[in-house]
């Protein structure tokens, strides 16, 4: 029963912001796909957004001091649901670190209780 309300084990929606097909972005996409397939299998939906072709206005990004603009860097992985929104920026290759930052628990028991 508690597990149902625990955001760490609930179904989640992830949004990955990338910039074109750069090395880093490509690496980020690969990392997030692995994350979903291995650690969050069956309870995760991901959306990949290329900032070059899409406007990312739905995401709450950081305000830039003094000009009213907001800043997003890529790659950034956002946990849109469950709320509150959580983000991880930069290198996404370390699954343990990413899961921790997003407040999610892996399906893999070794990692989940590690």
């Amino acid at each position: 029963m508690t597990a149902r309300h625990d955001p760490a084990t609930a179904s989640c929606e992830l949004t990955l912001f990338v910039s074109g097909a750069s090395d880093r972005s490509a690496q980020a996409i690969a990392s997030v796909r692995e994350l979903c397939d291995v650690h969050l299998a069956g309870r995760c939906r991901i959306t990949v957004i290329d900032v070059n072709t899409n406007v990312h206005s739905t995401v709450d990004t950081s305000p830039v001091a003094g000009c009213g603009h907001r800043l997003l860097v890529t790659p950034t992985l956002v946990r849109s649901l469950p709320l509150p929104e959580r983000k991880v920026v930069g290198d996404l290759s370390d699954a343990r670190r990413v899961l921790l930052a997003l407040g999610l628990r892996s399906n893999d028991p070794a990692l989940a209780h590690g």
């Binding site: 990338v18 750069s22 900032v51 990312h56 206005s57 990004t61 603009h69 800043l71 860097v73």
Partner: peptide, 22 residues
Amino acid sequence: EAEDTLRAIGAGEVDAFVLSDG
């Protein structure tokens, strides 16, 4: 988040900045 972003930038882990005017 800001700290994390700065760390990622510092570590050369990002490839682009997107500036939106709101």
